[in-house]
């Protein structure tokens, strides 16, 4: 019940995180910025539109957004939200979630290649490269959490990590958090890996892959990426704000505060950093793998 409410709130509030990030960036740029609810207006507008498809594309292009959003909604079902345990949790559900992230990526890349455009091919190629390197960082990070909590489900892991864990294995958790933050920024197409705002196709990754989508398809993509932001954010916040009192209001409030803080932090990172040159991004990701590995070695010792 408690989990159900929180999952429903996740589905409802996920686009708000995008609004908070944009607002933070506007603040740093000295603008007043778009309304916090702008992502919802965008979604509503797109859902009300028709669509235009390229003659080159096939059904794969149309299936991409559907499969992507379905995978993200499915992954959300396994996320423990704010101390509540997912009723669907099973040993190894973290691998299933990682698999669903992979499936979304697989179809996004194929939909991009389906347009036959050089720009979208370029984005697809970069996405394939970076996500191949982000995957080991994510799984090794999850292995640290599994080892630390002795649990193999995401809900179990989040129950097993509490404020006192930070006293025992603080350094390891710092390393994992750093690695997961890099994965969070990479997977969600954020600076310093990707720039969600640029209008120069040559420098984009994720945005350029969805250049030809429009209407409800594009709404599915936007909503799917908001959910993805929420999912990976849940993981990070569950680790960094381990408030587990058992009281739904306190735990939920701490979680909500953590998500808000994470969005603001993302906005701050985006405002204060430049995007890395593309050839430097793999170094960052290999760095994330190294951090996860180091943390795993430390908890295994």
């Amino acid at each position: 019940m408690r989990w159900g409410i929180q999952a429903a709130l996740g589905m409802l509030l996920a686009p708000l995180l995008l609004g908070v990030i944009t607002r933070t960036k506007a603040f740093f740029a000295g603008r007043c910025g778009a309304p916090l609810l702008q992502p919802y207006y965008d979604l509503a507008k797109l859902l009300g539109k028709g669509a235009v498809y390229s003659r080159t594309t096939s059904w794969v292009f149309r299936a991409g957004p559907v499969v992507g959003l379905a995978a993200m909604l499915m992954a959300l079902a396994f996320m423990p939200a704010g101390g509540a345990v997912s009723p669907f949790a099973f040993a190894g559900d973290m691998l299933f979630v990682a698999g669903l992230l992979g499936l979304t990526r697989f179809f996004t890349i194929l939909a991009a290649l389906d347009t036959g455009s050089a720009f979208e091919g370029m984005g697809a190629s970069r996405e394939a490269q970076f996500s191949a390197l982000a995957e080991p960082a994510l799984l090794l990070g999850l292995a640290v959490l599994a080892k630390q909590s002795g649990e193999l489900s995401l809900s179990g892991v989040m129950q097993g990590i509490s404020a006192s864990s930070w006293g025992v294995v603080g350094p390891e958790l710092v390393l994992v958090s750093a690695a997961l933050l890099i994965v969070f920024l990479t997977e969600n197409a954020r600076i310093p890996v990707d720039d969600p705002n640029t209008h120069l196709e040559l420098t984009m990754i994720h945005e350029v892959m969805v250049l030809d989508h429009g209407g409800p398809d594009f709404a599915f993509i936007l909503y799917g990426s908001a959910i993805k932001l929420w999912i990976l954010g849940t993981l990070l916040v569950g680790l960094l704000v381990p408030v587990r009192t058992g009281n739904a209001w306190i735990d939920g409030g701490a979680f909500a505060g953590g998500m808000l803080a994470l969005s603001v932090t993302t906005g701050v990172i985006e405002s204060t950093m430049a995007r890395l040159r593309l050839v430097r991004v793999p170094h960052l990701l290999v760095g994330a793998i190294a951090l996860s590995t180091l943390a795993l070695i430390l908890v295994l010792r």
Binding site: L47, A51, V52, Y53, R55, V66, L69, P216, D217, F220
Partner: peptide
């Protein structure tokens, strides 16, 4: 979701053109 998409697009204009070529 595929059904939702179909319902959304039913009765709306669905056009065809070339891939966006900048």
């Amino acid at each position: 979701l595929a059904l939702v998409r179909r319902r959304l697009l039913a009765g709306r204009t669905v056009g065809e053109t070339v891939t966006w070529d900048c």
